[in-house]
């Protein structure tokens, strides 16, 4: 596939719920191997945008091209093939409640690879190991914490080694250590596998450490889109308000944990923050 062609291209996306224009002619393009982080206030339409990009919620207007394929008008088979190259980790995890974690990750493998069960088991182990859940393989989603569920969802999204990965709020509800671990994993995926990533997040620290480009959603469009340095330099009052207000709160908590770690000297003893919504 040509390096120059954008992996994801959205043109003029419009989505309205009743009177409310959630997406208002939004344009977007993500290149291969690039990590785009989408920021925005709660309710600004980030999840709605993501749903359009993965072909779930058909926009009222506009088009979405993923690897050059129009996701809302292509035929069933090429859509299926395309979806095997995309991984999605949902905001709430969306693990299959009746299956163990191992079975959750095995599902795409057994559906699409034709590998023998023993091989699939090993792959499953590796994928769960990547997110630090190899010991929880045979637990049901209801038996693990919210943060663990989030990581398991990531492992499932990675099952087929996707070329494009979509993440809705990967680190919300994770303790700082695990969240930092996830950031590291994302950076590795980017570096080693050249995965194209679209990440929605509220965590500014995480956003700035993983992003190649940052986009801030406001009133159905991107108010600003650019490299972390560009965004940091922006003088737009709304951008400033978003960037300056949150980090203060965040810095306090990360300082708190930093001290906590140094005093205890043992990262393992930090209780897992489990406040998934």
């Amino acid at each position: 596939m040509a390096e120059s062609r954008p992996q994801i291209e959205a043109r003029g996306l419009v989505k309205t719920y009743g009177e409310h224009r959630i997406l208002d002619g939004l344009n977007l393009s993500v290149n291969r191997g690039e990590t785009l982080v989408i920021l925005g206030a709660s309710g600004s339409g980030k999840s709605t945008l993501l749903r359009s990009l993965i072909g779930l919620g058909r926009p009222d207007d506009g088009s979405v091209l993923v690897q050059g394929i129009d996701i809302f008008s292509t035929d069933r088979l090429s859509l299926k093939a395309l979806r095997c190259r995309m991984g999605v980790a949902f905001q709430g995890g969306a693990l299959f409640g009746s299956m163990t974690l191992a079975e959750n990750i095995d599902l795409p493998l057994s559906e699409f690879t034709g590998l023998p069960a023993s091989t699939r088991r090993i792959i499953t182990q590796i994928k769960l190991g990547m997110v630090g859940l190899e010991d929880a393989m045979d637990l049901l989603p209801s038996q693990i914490s919210g943060g663990m569920r989030k990581r398991a969802a990531l492992a499932r999204a990675l099952a087929l080694d996707p070329e494009i990965l979509f993440f809705d709020e990967p680190s919300a509800g994770l303790d700082p250590v695990t969240a930092a671990g996830l950031d590291l994993l994302i950076l590795q995926l980017k570096k080693v596998f050249h995965v194209t990533l679209v990440v929605v997040t509220h965590e500014l620290t995480s956003a700035f450490s993983i992003a190649d480009r940052l986009a801030l959603m406001h009133e159905g469009r991107f108010l600003i889109i650019g490299s972390p340095a560009d965004v940091q330099k922006s003088k737009d009052p709304i951008v400033r308000r978003f960037l300056d207000r949150l980090p203060e709160d965040k810095r306090k908590t990360s300082d708190f944990y930093q001290r906590f770690i140094e005093e205890e000297g043992d990262a393992q003893s930090i209780p897992e923050v489990d406040n998934e919504s």
Binding site: I54, L82, C84, Q91, A94, P108
Partner: peptide, 13 residues
């Protein structure tokens, strides 16, 4: 309601 159907769909199932 827990988006499992969505998850199936984006998996290509």
């Amino acid at each position: 309601v827990s988006q499992e159907i969505d998850a199936l769909t984006v998996m290509g199932l």
